[in-house]
Design a binder for these strands. Structure first.
Lengths: 339, 339
DNA sequence: TCACGGCACTTACCCGGTTCAGTAACTCCG
DNA sequence: CGGAGTTACTGAACCGGGTAAGTGCCGTGA
């Protein structure tokens, strides 16, 4: 028996028709009698025929694949559940539509753009996701120039001419600060992520404005690389500063856990001496003691929305942006009125 | 200017030669003069030509893509740094060779096999990785039947006729148990992962054998789904059992952190009352108090080795298996002699 | 001066599936 | 019973590259 994968020509030979008839039959297009169609389909089934994706891509200029390149170092990616959950949500949507995901981990945004150029030039993808938007971000303009469908996972103000899918961080922050203010906190610091990311900058600004609006102290914001080490270090600095805050918001949960450990090690009682809030919830927030009050979002759903938007863009040439639900504050044991 | 991506025909027209000459020139094959070659390359560069991957795939029957399907639920994947780090290591190797990674998150192993069948049938991938091998695992035989190059990320005894890339868990376990025995522990339990995974079973057996060899008590092993919740629950059970162990090994770090919290909450001092060891090290192990003694591996390197092996299989039809370094025990504050 | 070898390039056809423009045969209707 | 319309199907060409087998031209050596 022959090694090569069956083609429509093989089916045509066995069915005694031309390969065109086979193509029509298998694609449920008119032009073949029901009997012929059935027998062709039966043969295809029997010999295990699958359409060659390259041949298909060649004719309709469709790759049925979208791309995602991530430019954070491996150890950062590993520790943040965010991306894995996002990817898995993206997948859910894509696989339902028979679309594949091409993934690439690169070291910097310039490489990422180069990757996208290559994928697009080679016709490997029909569109891409863009995460971790910076300011300024050459990827935005680069992709717009290519005319490649792209969805920005981030706020519209960062998306340029591309289509954004985002959630309202400032609403989430408002809820959190209002809650902390109601508990009696006046000095709320934040251990933030990478300062060059637009979403960090938006959170920074929102925090200043909302704090001012609520009559809280001007917030101290410490920027980090999202690692536990820097989260711990930042917490140590905040605790030992002259104006020690009574509450700290962390931009991810690994830093919040690190902060909790540091606080306890320095003899502080959480939440009595220091309240902690983690931005983005995961199992981690629930397994430590006290469990962490967290800003919880359905990240897989966020990914699904992004994927749906991108597929719509690929199909129709454009699609409206999508605002996902804001993160929901889940109070747990790490927040309380200050002593 | 025309919308469509440039092809070699466009280059041929502009250079005043046939497209075959262009093909020869761009692929550095003899048959064109240096002058013509240079001018063709210059034109290609200028108009931003890239070889269409579908067309290429069609002629060489090569997709320049390998696949990885993961069948764990989204929330499990997110929380375990292992897979993200593995993927990023795989990527490092692949991208250096211009190969892409097709990723799919599915819900069960049967779906995973179906995915592999489809990818292979459609010519989308040249080979795949297989992770989380079970016993019995229909994927092994299914893939072997297809004749598709595949690397099993796991022990040779689980790989059937496929090529394994693995690390010696039993050596790592021996180091750990020897270390704990030297500290004076006699009762070492383990909070293990999914019991249907072969690698869990191998660890279980190794632990029994090594414990017996060292004269330790017959180990209590509790199986979980790797989640923090189940890790916490298992720890609670172990601590309140009649034969409370003096040390516990956890099959991942999120469970170890959960176990630490539970122990402290139940009034135990770690490490004086209970020593803890985490299998696989991440930032998490270092940010909690006390920091966790861990079995540390270079997971990205593990991924790179797997990728290199798979690429060799694709190129040569077969490749030898590869045994990666065993995990190294990194003692930290969570282990000490029992009270 | 002419056969020969090799260079530089072309023509023809392939990969696997899709599309377009036919072409028989059969049906319907006036 | 002849012409129009429909059905079921086929041949040729195409997508964007790649390969095998030429072809024409040049320089060289006998």
């Amino acid at each position: 028996m022959s090694k090569h994968r069956p083609t429509i020509a093989d089916i045509a030979r066995r069915a005694g028709v031309s390969k065109v008839a086979v193509s029509y039959a298998l694609n449920d297009r008119p032009g073949v009698s029901p009997a012929t169609r059935a027998s062709i389909k039966a043969i295809a089934q029997e010999i295990g025929w699958r359409p060659n994706s390259a041949a298909r891509a060649l004719t309709h200029a469709r790759a049925d694949t979208v791309g995602l390149a991530l430019s954070r170092p491996a150890r950062m990616l590993g520790v943040e559940p965010f991306f894995m959950e996002l990817i898995s949500g993206i997948e859910t949507e894509l696989s339902a539509r028979g679309c594949a995901l091409l993934l690439q981990v690169v070291t910097d945004p310039a490489q990422e753009l180069e990757m996208y150029r290559r994928w697009w030039g080679e016709g490997r993808v029909d569109g891409v996701f863009l995460a971790d938007v910076r300011s300024p971000d050459p990827r935005i303009e680069g992709i717009a120039e290519l005319g490649m469908p792209a969805v920005v996972i981030g706020h519209p103000s960062a998306a340029g001419t591309l289509t954004p899918v985002w959630s309202d961080d400032s609403a989430a922050l408002r809820d959190t600060l209002t809650y902390l203010a109601a508990l009696g906190h006046r000095s709320v610091a934040r251990v933030a992520g990478l300062p060059e990311l637009i979403h960090t900058q938006l959170r920074d600004r929102a925090q200043r404005e909302i704090s001012a609006g609520l009559g809280l102290d001007e917030p101290v914001v410490v920027h980090t690389d999202y690692s536990g080490e820097e989260g711990a270090h930042a917490t140590r600095r905040l605790i030992s500063s002259a104006t020690r805050p009574t509450a700290v918001i962390y931009d991810n949960d690994i830093m919040a856990v690190a902060g909790l450990s540091v606080a306890q090690e320095m003899g502080l009682d959480v939440p009595a001496d220091l309240s902690l809030v983690a931005w983005d919830d995961s199992q981690l927030s629930r397994v430590v003691r006290p469990p962490l009050t967290a800003l919880s979002r359905d990240i897989p759903a966020y990914g699904s929305h992004a994927a749906r938007t991108l597929l719509a863009m690929v199909a129709d040439g454009s699609a409206p942006g999508f605002e996902d639900a804001a993160a929901r504050l889940v109070p747990r044991g790490s927040t309380a009125p200050p002593r």
